[in-house]
Amino acid sequence: MSERTSAELASRMAAYDKRDPDPFLALMADRSLPIDPDAKMALLQDQTSRSRQFLLPVVRPLARATIVLVQLFRILSPHWPHAPRFLHRSIGFGMRHVLTPNANRLILRHFHLGAEILRFIADNATPGFHPELAPMRPRNIADVEDNMFLDHDLNIFNFLIQLNRELDRRGTTIGPVARLDFSAISDTVALDPLPSGRFNIIDLQTAIECYTPAYALMLTDRDFWRASNSLQLDETIGIYAARLTGEEKHLAMINNRHPLVPFSTLQAGFRLMLHGLSTEMLHGFLRELKARQAT
């Protein structure tokens, strides 16, 4: 836990009133979830912001109505427009100028954690073989503007296809490993300083709801469908980790389930938040196992 997080928690503890308990304090003090304390603090501060309280209820129904209109348009034009580079530069502009530092921190962390989880699975399920994936180590906002969001979605499908093809070639399956290789799982994520101007006030969840219709419009119908349904692969990745570690308690924390029965794309914004939370918790769980094995 960083000094900033410790100081924030101590300050709220000092102001604790049992007749008016602070929900933020209760969630921050809770230790039931295996999530990095600094990431948890960033998420809670973002979730309790005025932007999420007052702007999200207005943005969400408008965003979902826009997705419906875009999907109707995609019936007539499934491939045009297709502007992934413009989409990513637009997202980068928003991250740089209006998103909170906490929101940007959580976004950049997500790419690192997802890449480490996939690498951990490959290291232990198919030692010596690693699927060919796009690098996911952004240190700043400029790094994500080179189609990183789209590549992130492509990575998960390419990972599953290449990993299982290699398992078939070897004639093996994913099973418990006596001594796990945790070299892919790091304890910290190094990021450059993030923008914190007077207009950096939009929380992560509101931003995601705004970005989702833009995703639907500026990517092909197939790209948007694939991106939306990649979220349900949280369950698949969680099962792989359970088979390798012999531990299954983290599966109860996965909310994006049943990839064989896709959800509507209308819920993609909220499910993306759940995807980020699931990734944080699975990575935190693997960090706990890493520490346990080391001792």
Rank of each mutant, 00 (worst) to 15 (best):
M1F: 03
M1Y: 03
S2C: 06
T5R: 15
A7G: 02
A7T: 06
E8V: 11
E8W: 06
E8K: 10
L9S: 01
S11Y: 00
R12T: 03
A14P: 01
A15H: 05
A15R: 08
Y16A: 06
K18I: 11
D20R: 13
P21G: 08
P21C: 09
P21M: 11
A26I: 11
A26V: 10
L27A: 12
M28V: 01
D30F: 07
R31K: 15
S32V: 03
P34N: 03
I35K: 02
D38S: 01
K40F: 01
M41S: 13
A42Y: 01
L43Q: 10
L43M: 11
D46G: 07
D46R: 06
T48F: 13
L56W: 06
L56Y: 12
V58M: 13
V59L: 14
V59T: 15
P61Y: 02
R64C: 10
I67K: 05
V70K: 06
Q71F: 05
R74W: 02
L76M: 09
L76S: 10
H79S: 13
P84N: 10
L87I: 09
S90R: 12
G94V: 01
H97W: 15
V98C: 10
P101Q: 09
A103T: 12
N104E: 14
L106P: 11
L106R: 08
L108M: 06
H110P: 07
F111E: 07
H112S: 04
L113Q: 12
A115H: 13
E116K: 05
I117P: 09
L118P: 08
F120E: 00
N124E: 06
T126G: 00
T126W: 00
I141F: 11
A142Q: 12
N147D: 13
N147A: 13
F149R: 02
F149P: 00
L150R: 07
H152C: 01
D153T: 14
N155G: 03
N155R: 07
I156W: 15
I156R: 15
F159W: 08
L160V: 05
Q162R: 06
R165K: 13
D168H: 01
D168Y: 00
G171W: 01
T172A: 15
G175V: 01
A178Q: 04
F182Q: 00
I185K: 01
S186M: 03
D187H: 06
P193K: 09
L194I: 10
P195T: 14
S196E: 15
S196G: 07
G197R: 01
I202S: 05
T206Y: 13
A207I: 03
I208Q: 12
T212M: 14
P213I: 14
Y215C: 05
L217I: 14
L217F: 15
L219G: 02
R222Q: 06
F224P: 04
R226D: 01
R226H: 04
A227D: 02
A227G: 08
L231E: 08
D234S: 15
D234K: 13
T236F: 04
T236Y: 07
G238R: 09
I239W: 14
I239A: 01
I239K: 09
A241V: 15
R243T: 04
A252C: 06
N255W: 12
H258A: 11
L260I: 06
V261I: 09
F263E: 15
T265A: 12
L266C: 08
G269M: 04
F270C: 03
M273Y: 05
L282N: 04
G284L: 04
F285C: 04
L286F: 12
K290N: 12
Q293V: 08
A294Q: 13
